[in-house]
Amino acid sequence: MSVNDTAAALPAANGGALPIGGGLPSNLLLRFSAAALLWFAASGVTALWPDAADAQEWERTGEFASLLVVAAGLLVLAALLAAAIRPAPRSRLEAAIASLSASVPWLIALALGVTGWEILTAKLNLLPRPFFVPPQALLEVYLDDWPRLLDCFAASLRLLITGYAVGSILGVVTGVAIGWSRAVGYWVHPVLRLIGPLPATAWLPIAFFAFPTSWSASVFLIALASGVPVTVLTWSGVAGVNSAYYDIARTLGASPRFLVLKVAVPAAMPHVFVGLFMGLGASFAVLVVAEMLGVKSGVGWYLQWAQGWAAYGNMYAALLVMALLCSGLVTLLFRVRDRLLAWQKGMLKW
């Protein structure tokens, strides 16, 4: 078996990349059909198996089953297209089909998972209610309550971005100032040491009392949570800059301003991004707590509200939205870093 054959047999193992010179795997049709079949099966279980008699009948079951059929249909379509068109080697279409083919194990697992979930909840009613709901309950939330969810999503995003932007900008400025100026370091360092390790949520009671609105209080808390790691990492980055970089710039006629903006800051950037990632994680935690305890909108508030009504379907729906929000922002930050730090070797790909 040649190297190419091995690579073709294990498309998932090489992360969807094409086996060099190999084209698409030969059993493409089989792979896609297996996945499609399981999605059809999930749809059939959902639509044809009656809901458990000892519980409520779930709404939107038909819509959910249709959605599953659509997913299965798309897979069939992809398989037929791939077989019929025979995309040119190394074309974009071929790359797309290859990456879909690499996802087949996941698609199969998802179909099995959804079927199992459907059977355990709606069909057999084996899991305690109301804590566990079938997947169509989430669909019901998205179809019926989407205006409110969208509102909450937007509110969370606005609050998070505002707080995180304020915290990151102040963090970078403070970090550079501490790293650059002995006087600033003398005064700020002890404060940072005392306050930095304190979780931002500890300020919650005083923040909601001291700020005019719970929104501004939350911005403060998120800024604090994200600003501290950004400050510390920026500072350590600036302090660790190779002093020869400054010597070079000075002999070439650089002003102090140039030394800060064109030498210290870019040299510290890899550290700054570590701080930005830590700060983003911390800001998620503070966002949810602030929205659960004070702010009257946002996904955190929605979670709390849904729990109050024992509307667990809404809660799962909101959790999923929250996960997409957080993951999306982390991905975005990775993209920004990859662009700005393209000069670095061996970066982690997200």
Binding site: N242, A244, Y245, D247, I248, A249, L252, G253, A254, S255, F258, K262, V263, P266, A267, M269, L341, W343, Q344
Partner: peptide, 23 residues
């Protein structure tokens, strides 16, 4: 210097441009 101490975040051209840029 003994070490080239080029700025790793700048291309060769931008490194060479350093003195002109600074002034």
């Amino acid at each position: 210097f003994q070490d080239p101490t080029l700025y790793p975040w700048r291309t060769v051209r931008d490194n060479v441009a350093l003195g002109l840029e600074a002034r």
